[in-house]
């Protein structure tokens, strides 16, 4: 009985993780500029990874694999914001304008408006 319930719960977690993963794939395709795409990529780093790894941990139970899976999750949670921040900073350093500061919402640019960054920076 408990076995069946755990299987069902981990199945729900895994499928929900896959669904959020696809959202994180659609987002970067449809969002207008580089900074907004960064947010969509953040979905795959956080909730998608969390749900799939927790689903696998529930299936594995108390084993060495579970410890390693949790370690993967910890590494991802600590490195994902650093990578996002480095990407945002690199974009800013290359002169990609993130929008208006403290003002009106920036107008949503058409899909292919941001050009190549200057390569001699």
């Amino acid at each position: 009985m408990v076995e069946t319930m755990l299987t069902a719960v981990s199945g729900v977690f895994l499928l929900a993780g896959g669904l959020f993963g696809i959202m994180g794939g659609i987002g970067p395709l449809r969002f207008p500029d580089f900074y907004t795409r960064l947010h969509a990529a953040g979905i795959t780093d956080t909730l998608c990874a969390f749900l799939i790894i927790v689903g696998l941990v529930i299936q594995a139970g108390l084993a060495l694999v579970s410890i390693k899976l949790m370690l993967i999750l910890v590494f991802m949670v600590f490195t994902a914001p650093t990578a996002s921040h480095a990407l945002a900073r690199a974009g800013m350093a290359a002169g990609d304008d993130p929008g208006t500061l403290e003002g009106e919402p920036a107008p949503v640019a058409p899909l292919d408006s941001s050009g190549e960054p200057s390569s001699n920076s």
């Binding site: 669904l19 794939g25 970067p28 974009g91």
Partner: peptide, 28 residues
């Protein structure tokens, strides 16, 4: 589902337009 996500990210990596869009896709 994860393979579908990777395929979508690959489309973004190919379309660009800036080098950072491609790096975001590679990160995904």
């Amino acid at each position: 589902a994860i393979f579908v996500t990777m395929a979508l990210a690959l489309v973004r990596a190919l379309k660009g337009p800036s080098v950072f869009d491609r790096i975001v896709a590679v990160n995904v």
